[in-house]
Each structure stands twice: as structure tokens, then as C-alpha cells.
Amino acid sequence: MPLTLAFLLAGCGGGSEASNETAPANQQQADASPVEGKITLSPDQIASAGIQIARPTVGGGGTLELPATIEGDPQGTQVVSAAIGGRVVSLTRNLGQSVGRGDTLAVIESREAAQLKGEVEASRARLTLANSNLAREQRLFAQRVSPEQDLIAARTAAIEARIAYNQAQQQVSAAGGGGGGLNRLGIAAPVSGQVISRSVVLGQTVAADAELYRIANLSSVSLSLNLQPADAGRVKPGNLVTVTAAGRQATAKVSFVSPALDAQTRLVPVIATLDNRNMEWRVGEPVTASVQLTGSGGDGAISVPTTAVQTDEGKSVVFVRTKTGFQAVPVTLGDSSGASVIVRSGLKGTEQIATVNSFTLKAELGKSEAAED
């Protein structure tokens, strides 16, 4: 390519010729601005040299590319635990299977379950008796046979019996409920989703509060990121994140930027939310995340590919397309992230610039400057 380009650019000039009378003024201008030459190229020469042209990106602050991990949405993940200790006599779901809210996932057999259910039956019987006594006292009081004091006592006893019955029912409900027997309790799914973890096997004896299952609603998953503090300052909730993995790409949105650094890694945890209704993304899967940064220059920040920037005599330049070829324009650069860099000054954002193979233009510019010297 360099030999081919040398022939293609053989007729290119490094700038307009100057007379001896104007040479001192031009020399002063060169001293003030080391980049002054223009490169003349025809469209055919530009195409043959493989130079690609594009406009700068206006708006935003570029992107930051880094590794990330797919995780279950913390708001959609639920641990299913045993409220009482006992022996697991039934497990109705395996890993990956779908469950609905209220579905029975496991049945635990224990004496505590028998006591809880027995208390429900006993309190129901006491409530029935108290209601019967209240009805009798109401009838006797209406007939002026029983004093009002007995009616009040019967009404109080009925209220207390109902409270005790409701409390017994709530205790069974908190422990699970159902189960099919006096000494068995069923453990129900608190949310709809998929089983992502099962911690017990059939016949195992578990303690109270032992984890049985873990269920996640995977229609929405989270993207776990860890940013350097300097980068985290340019990431705000609502910024977009492009997620890429083996043949797949999707867009997530930043939902949380931690106000504190992780004590161990000294990095800033960031969470982005990713739509997963098509079940394309798996929990624990490593992916590449390209995070949209908020530019310090505001929404009008200008960014260019890093391949568009070259260095000439210690200064950064970008080659701007002209009618006759290209003009090397000095630029002041800002933050860089991934494959782009912010241009703080030197460009308006409406120019067409060389983005690919701009190094060949730098080589030709160097030859032009050497010839002038």
C-alpha cells in the first residue's frame, strides 16, 4: 500500500507556491502554526488509497467499553425458604422450570406443622361454640330472660375466639399452608418466574428458614458493571448501554450508579436493566458492555474515531475533506473512551473527515513539509 500510495500521490502538493517577496511572511506563519499544508487528491486517488470519510459524532460524550456480567434483576429474584423445620416429602419443580405465583413448590412434614394445623382446628371449634353462645344470649336477652351483662360477655368471647382463629390461620399461611395432611405444610411460590436454584433433595431434613429454591423473573435482567471513579462521574441513570455477546446485541439502560466505592475493589458498582422477554440472555453470562458517557461539554460534544486523529510535530490533527483533497486541521482533544475521542476545539461537527487510513495522509503531509524545508 505505501508504494502504491506513493505513485498515487506523486503529483500532490504540500501547499501553494510563494514568491521570494512573501517568503519571510510565510515563514513566520509556519513558525506560528506547524500544520499548514493542504493535500490535493482526486476522488479516485482517495478511493484507491482506502481512505474512508465520515462526519464527526455530535452529542453525548462517547462510549466506554468494558466486560460485564448478566445477573437476575434484584427486584425480580426471590428466595423460597422453609418457615418450619421438618422432612421434605415433595419437590414439584426442577431447575429451569417455570412457576406461577402461589404454586406449591415443596411439602414439608413435621410435628410443628401438626401443631399449627391442630391449633387452627381447635380455634375454629372454639369460635363455633362462642358464636352459638352469643346467638343464645341474644335470644334470651330479647326475651328479657338473660341480663345485658351476659350478652356483653358472650359477644366479647365470640370476638376473642374469632381473633384466635384468624391468628392460627395466619400462622399456617406464613408457614406455607396446604400440604395435604395434618402434619404437612406446602411451600408456595411467592412470585412467578423460573427456578434458578434448588438447594434441597427429596427426603432431606431441613431447619427453619433453610433455603429451598431461588426463583427469578427473567423477563428483565440486570447488567453488573464496575467503573473507575473517574468514568463513573460521566455515567448517569438513563444512559444507554450496548450489550454484545456471541451473535447477539441489545440495548440496556443504566438504572443505578452507586454513590460509594466497593470496599474491596475500590470501583463504582453500576447496574443497567436489560429487557429479556425473549429469554436471549442467561444469568451469569459474561458480555461486553459499551456504556454511553455523558460528555463534559454537554449535549453538543463532538467526538471522532481515534483512527481519525494523527500527530504532526507534536500536535493532534484531523484531516478535513476539501474540494481538492484534505486540509490538516489542528484539534484539541478531550477524554477518550473505547474507539472514540472527544474533540474540544478545532471542529464544528459538520465537516467530513478522514476516519480510516488517515495515517497515509499524515505520511504525505510529512513529505510535503520536508520538501518545503
Rank of each mutant, 00 (worst) to 15 (best):
G186T: 12
S220Y: 00
S199K: 13
G186R: 11
V206E: 01
L218E: 09
S199H: 05
A210V: 14
G178Q: 10
L185A: 06
A175C: 06
E211P: 15
E211Y: 09
G179A: 03
A188W: 09
A216I: 06
E211V: 15
A188F: 08
V200A: 01
Q194C: 00
L182S: 14
A208I: 13
N217G: 05
S220K: 12
A174I: 10
S219E: 08
A207R: 13
L185V: 14
A189R: 08
Y213L: 09
G179P: 05
E211T: 15
Y213G: 06
P190F: 08
N217K: 05
Q204E: 15
E211Q: 15
N183A: 14
L212W: 12
T205P: 00
Y213Q: 04
R214S: 04
P190M: 12
V200K: 06
G179N: 03
I215T: 06
G176A: 09
I187H: 12
A175M: 08
S219Y: 06
V191E: 06
Y213M: 08
A210G: 14
V206Q: 05
T205M: 13
S219F: 07
A174Y: 13
G181Q: 09
G203H: 01
L202V: 01
L218M: 07
D209M: 13
V206Y: 10
Q194N: 02
Y213F: 15
G203R: 04
G180A: 11
V200R: 07
L182T: 09
P190A: 11
G186M: 13
G179F: 11
G177N: 08
G186K: 12
A189V: 02
G193S: 03
G181P: 02
R184I: 07
A174K: 00
G193Q: 05
V201S: 12
I187G: 10
R214G: 04
S173M: 08
L182W: 04
S197D: 10
R214Y: 05
T205H: 03
L185H: 12
V201R: 09
A216V: 05
Q194S: 07
T205Y: 12
L202S: 05
G193T: 04
V221A: 03
A189G: 02
N183L: 13
G177D: 10
L202H: 01
E211L: 15
I187V: 15
I196H: 02
G193A: 06
S192H: 02
I215Q: 11
S197P: 00
A189E: 04
A174G: 02
V172T: 08
V206W: 13
G179M: 07
V200S: 04
G176P: 02
L218I: 14
G203C: 01
T205F: 10
P190L: 12
A208P: 11
S220V: 13
A207P: 01
V201A: 08
G177V: 07
G176L: 12
S173Y: 11
I215V: 15
S192N: 02
V191I: 14
R184C: 03
S219K: 09
N217R: 08
S219I: 01
V191W: 01
A210E: 15
A175R: 06
G186D: 10
N183M: 13
Q204F: 08
A216L: 06
S173E: 14
S197F: 00
V191F: 00
V191H: 06
G176W: 13
P190S: 12
V206T: 01
Y213C: 03
V200N: 01
A174C: 03
V195D: 05
D209W: 15
V172W: 10
S192F: 03
